[in-house]
Design a protein around this nucleic acid. Structure first.
Length: 431
RNA sequence: GGAGAGGUGGCCGAGUGGUUGAAGGCGCAGCACUGGAAAUGCUGUUUAGGGGAAACUUUAACGAGGGUUCGAAUCCCUCCCUCUCCGCCA
């Protein structure tokens, strides 16, 4: 959520920054008008309430001084109290209504792109920041990972579709073990880098989804439970960020860095026909997520470090990748700044997103009221929240299968994974 | 699912109609004491919104929402959540 005060005081700046996401999409004018009306009502109501409070104090004081509780002086005051109360009763609902409209509009407004975010219309304008591992790109032709997987007998789609629906997959034998090995490896690596592991709830309430900004705008992207106010998490970002919702932290506790392995559930509405095969786009997938709560002064450097921590996994696995920065037109709703890591998928002959590392600044902290107090300073400040995948496990598996595919059809296991898996090569087996 | 208890400040915990934004304690900050520290003593310490250049001022908040009253943390209603016991269960 944007700071209403900022919108009020620098409307042109805010509107200009919002326009960078796509001109004409967002209009702050209605917010400015509602805010104006709301404040006017508040002033009037507040003045009446002050009088009401005054009367409530005068009455017992007069009685103490000897006034007759049933006398005309007291009765008049009571009557005025009633009158004031009636007037307040008329203003209050109007003010509440304005406030709730204002809230609705504010929640629907995305974050402002940072000052350094490259300006552009869509993903075609995302600049490449750096590339890594050109020397590890394989030269021979390869099968797409789902074909490798079926041949090796380590993944099965048909049965998963029978059990659930399309866009579900079942891993088997070495496939299941490889997924588990990747998860363990990533968690070990990230905890060694200073992230404290958490295993959060996989179902969250609406308030949590609102804080991280999946709600209200993206309700149709998540699975919802019918009988409870609970949703399946689309990413560990939601439960982990909400761990500190409505809390006031000590500045000395910052930064807080967490990593979490969770399954993630996404409806992928609007993705019909795209990536229908393999491990790229599923309703359920595993991910190790990195989440940070930091002091605003440190947020930029923590963001850069977060990206490096995600990259470290790809480097350890020797998977070629590139880093791109999302331009203003492609930036996610809550992000002020975002880097994507894209891994090389030889069968497609292109890079595919495997991690998205965003700095939300105080956008989520404001929605979730995640604040901190600085010793000796008055008041509280909002923390900055950051998160990124470290990494998407299914897509990593796909990248491993393809990039480590040998001409003879076998798949080598990356060295760092061998201790986890207890083997060096995957061979074709009868299914 | 059945029965009961409870939700108060950063934390613990008093408070059943009138200066209670809220006793007391812990924690934290400052000062004193000390060579320095501990201990001790004193002082201070909620958040959010509005108005104001500022000093300051005003409103709201004791799980949430409604009601009674001139006045509600305190009384009434509805909802949510937590805990305990029993049942069920990984």
């Amino acid at each position: 959520m944007l700071d209403l005060k900022q919108i009020r005081e620098n409307p042109q700046y805010v509107q200009d920054r919002l326009n960078l996401r796509g001109a004409g999409q967002y209009d702050i004018q209605p917010i400015l008008e509602l805010d104006q009306q709301q404040r006017q009502l508040e002033q009037e109501r507040s003045r009446l309430q002050a009088r009401s409070n005054e009367i409530a104090k005068i009455i017992p004081a007069k009685i103490k001084q000897g006034s007759d509780p049933k006398g005309s002086e007291i009765l008049e005051l009571r009557e005025e109290g009633n009158k004031v109360k009636t007037e307040i009763g008329e203003l209050e609902p109007r003010e509440k209504e304005l406030k709730s409209q204002l809230e609705t509009l504010l929640l629907a407004l995305p974050n402002l792109p940072s000052e350094t975010t490259p300006i552009g219309k869509n993903e075609d304008d995302n600049p490449e920041v750096r590339r890594w591992g050109e020397e590890y790109k394989i030269q021979h032709s390869v099968l797409p990972h789902w074909e490798i997987g079926e041949k090796l007998g380590i993944l099965n789609s048909d049965r998963a579709v029978k059990v659930a629906q399309s866009r579900f997959i079942m891993l088997k034998g070495a496939g299941a073990a490889l997924e588990r090995a990747l998860i363990s490896f990533m968690l070990d690596k990230q905890t060694a880098a200073g992230y404290i592991e958490v295993l959060p709830p996989l179902l969250v309430n609406s308030q949590s989804l609102t804080a991280t900004s999946q709600l209200p705008k993206f309700a149709d992207e998540s699975f919802k439970c019918q009988d409870d106010d609970l949703w399946l998490i689309p990413t560990a970002e939601v439960p982990v960020t909400n761990l500190y919702r409505d809390e006031i932290l000590e500045a000395s506790q910052l930064p807080i860095r967490h990593c979490a392995y969770t399954p993630c559930f996404r409806r992928e509405a609007g993705a019909y026909g795209r990536d229908t095969k393999g491990l790229i786009r599923l309703h359920q997938f595993n991910k190790v997520e990195l989440v940070k709560f930091v002091h605003p002064d440190k947020s930029e450097e923590e963001h850069q470090a977060l990206v490096r921590d995600a990259e470290a996994i790809l480097q350890a696995l020797k998977l070629p990748y590139r880093v791109i920065e999302l331009c203003t037109g492609d930036l996610g709703f809550g992000a002020a700044r975002c880097y994507d890591l894209e891994v090389w998928l030889p069968s497609a002959n292109k890079y595919r997103e495997i991690s998205s590392c965003s700095n939300f600044r105080d956008f989520q902290a404001r929605r979730g009221s995640i604040r901190f107090k600085e010793a000796g300073k008055k008041g509280t400040q909002f923390v900055h929240t950051l998160n990124g995948s470290g990494l998407a496990v299914g897509r990593t598996m796909a990248a491993v299968l393809e990039n480590y595919q040998q001409p003879d059809g076998t798949v080598k296991i990356p060295e760092v994974l061998q201790p986890y898996l207890g083997r060096e090569v995957l061979y074709e087996t009868a299914t």
